[in-house]
Design a binder for these strands. Structure first.
Length: 103
DNA sequence: CGGATGACGACAC
DNA sequence: GGTGTCGCCATCC
């Protein structure tokens, strides 16, 4: 066991980064994978699907600025309450909301 | 061991 | 800017 790359260490790293994202800002799966330096966007998505309930998963969106298709309506509602800038209905403006992006 | 799947991403048209 | 296709990485069948 523990031979899987999805070790708790990887999960904790991803969740820690998501929790570090302030309200009103968002991050992407690819950015998280890049920050962790391991796996890929698919891995981050898998971690979120398994342990996303323990972190503000709605602050994690796709590279195109659209939340996960699973709960997009729920995510948009949450982001709207946090004053997250939208570039279009259902599409977040990563240019301003991107947490990794310099202001 | 090979094929299919998934809370994704980048590129081509 | 929307749609279609391929690639990535790990897991499941």
């Amino acid at each position: 066991m523990a031979a899987r790359v999805m070790d708790e260490e990887y999960v904790e790293q991803v969740l820690a980064l998501v929790e570090r994202v302030p309200a009103g800002r968002v991050t992407t799966y690819g950015a998280l994978a890049d920050e962790v330096g391991r796996g890929g966007p698919r891995l981050v998505g898998r971690v979120m699907s398994l342990h996303g309930g323990a972190v503000p998963w709605w602050r994690v969106v796709r590279a195109d600025g659209r939340p996960a298709e699973c709960h997009d309506g729920e995510a948009v509602r949450r982001l709207l309450e946090e004053d997250v800038p939208f570039a279009a209905p259902g599409r977040v403006d990563l240019r301003r909301a991107g947490w990794w992006t310099p202001d």
